[in-house]
Design a protein around this nucleic acid. Structure first.
Lengths: 118, 118
DNA sequence: TCGGATATATCCATCTCGGATACAACGAGA
DNA sequence: TCTCGTTGTATCCGAGATGGATATATCCGA
């Protein structure tokens, strides 16, 4: 269980943390990722995205990462980010909250309560 | 699957819909319910609560319900609310989004991916 | 080399949130 | 029945978050 005095995050902040939990990514990629996993129902605009990244970085939840990669073509414009240890702790805490809310939705009959891990 | 042209809801709005999915409730009770199922990590203030209820009612997602009940003592101050059909559809859609995000969190290694239905 | 797509960044109006405040009605006890 | 603390609803306000528009620079294919 997480739950200490970790800093709070906004909804958009959690989306970014979740996108980065799978590995480092750059801003534009995060936008696409969020749109994908939410089926398009959540779409971060550039304003929200870069402001959120700046805040998360200032709070020590994410940090810029070296951009070298093998498979992907090098693009000097891209700035890659990755989770810090603190950022991962916060992401875990928020994920646990999500899980609790999902369970409550199942209890309330809003969901069937079976399918998992797409 | 839900997903038509249902109106959007704010995070606070979904908390209220979730609270009402289990049956009708009054404002003060909703506040307590939200605090409970989130382990205290989400707490709606009165400002957010009543503003949210008014907006949900204006959008046709909830409606005021007759307050007669057997077990509970009658209290003329209380105003009970319940989900409309539309409100339930929206709640289902949001719950499905939650489920998808939870699954993504499992995939990203933030959650173990077992325990359910507290 | 030209143009469209990619990528980052900032600005602005609008909306949302939570706390403070106000006030009315309830119940218990003297 | 009178008083008082609690319950319950409602509004107001400042602070902060959102998303869309805009600007600018770089990459890549034709």
């Amino acid at each position: 269980m997480a739950q200490r005095n970790l800093p709070p995050v906004t909804p958009a902040g959690f989306q970014v943390l979740l996108a980065l939990a799978g590995g480092r990514a750059h801003g534009y990629g995060i936008m696409g990722f969020v749109g994908e996993i939410t089926g398009g129902s959540v779409q971060l605009g550039p304003g929200t995205l870069y402001r959120t990244l700046a805040r998360l970085a200032a709070d020590g939840l994410v940090q810029e990462a070296p951009g070298m990669s093998e498979d992907e073509p090098h693009d000097a414009r891209r700035r890659y980010y990755q989770l810090t240890d603190l950022g991962r702790q916060v992401a875990v805490r928020e994920a646990e909250l999500l899980e609790r809310l999902t369970a409550a939705a199942v209890d309330a009959g809003l969901l069937d309560g079976q399918a998992r891990t797409a």
